[in-house]
Simulated scan of single mutants.
Amino acid sequence: MSGYQYPLRADWSTEEVVAVVDFFTKVEQAYESSVEREEFMKHYRAFKQVVPSMAEEKTLCKEFEESSGYVAFRVVKLAKESAAGDQLKVKQ
């Protein structure tokens, strides 16, 4: 487990918490090793089901960045610019 907390909300269901944590775990993976684009996008789509609002997405991603140092937006942007089957790896 990482040494920081994931940005979660008390009113989310267990399934919603799992979807959000899985998304942020894939963001970490893109920084620490690599993640397959389709796998990442699957988790991003599940995250967007929980957090459809762009404003809330930005708030959660900012909280995650402040806690972890990882910028979720960079991975999402990389995924959207990549082709199917690509491995996502954020170069720091």
Rank of each mutant, 00 (worst) to 15 (best):
A72H: 00
F47P: 05
D86V: 07
Y6A: 03
F47E: 05
L60S: 10
F24P: 01
V50Q: 00
D11G: 04
L78C: 11
T14W: 10
V71F: 08
S34P: 00
T14E: 10
V50Y: 04
A79D: 02
E28V: 08
E63S: 03
F23I: 11
K26N: 13
V50G: 01
H43Q: 09
S34E: 01
V71Q: 07
E36M: 13
V18F: 06
P52K: 10
A55Q: 11
A79I: 07
K26F: 08
E28A: 10
M54P: 04
Q29C: 05
L88C: 04
K91F: 11
P52G: 07
V20A: 05
V18I: 15
A10D: 14
V20M: 02
D11M: 03
K89H: 09
V75T: 09
K89P: 03
L88T: 03
E38Y: 09
E16S: 13
V90G: 00
Q5S: 14
Y70S: 02
Y6T: 09
V51G: 02
G3W: 01
T59V: 10
G85F: 01
Q5K: 14
V51E: 08
Q87R: 03
Y6Q: 07
C61Y: 04
E28F: 00
V20T: 06
Y70C: 06
M41C: 08
A19W: 01
E28P: 01
F64Q: 04
R37I: 03
H43R: 11
V90I: 15
E39S: 12
V17G: 03
Y31H: 06
E16A: 11
F47V: 10
F64E: 01
G3P: 03
M41A: 08
A72M: 09
D22Q: 14
L88Y: 04
V50S: 07
R9Q: 15
P52F: 06
V71E: 07
K42S: 12
A19K: 08
E81Y: 05
R74M: 07
E28C: 09
M41E: 15
T59I: 11
W12S: 02
V18Q: 12
V90Y: 01
C61G: 06
V35T: 09
E38Q: 15
Y70P: 05
A83I: 00
D22T: 13
T14F: 10
K58R: 13
A84S: 14
A10Y: 05
V50H: 07
W12H: 09
F23Y: 15
K26Q: 14
G3A: 07
F23G: 04
L8G: 06
F24L: 15
D22W: 01
V21M: 12
K26M: 14
A79S: 11
S13N: 08
M41G: 02
S13E: 11
V76I: 15
L60D: 05
S67R: 00
P7T: 10
V71W: 04
V20R: 00
Y4W: 12
Y4H: 12
F47Q: 04
E57R: 06
W12C: 02
K91L: 10
Q87S: 14
F64R: 03
R74F: 09
A55V: 08
S53R: 13
K89I: 05
F73E: 12
V21N: 09
E32R: 14
E57D: 15
E81K: 10
S67Q: 08
G3L: 08
A10Q: 09
A30W: 03
D11Y: 06
V21Y: 04
A83C: 08
S33A: 13
E56Y: 00
A46Y: 05
V75K: 01
T25G: 14
R74V: 12
D22F: 08
S33H: 08
G69S: 06
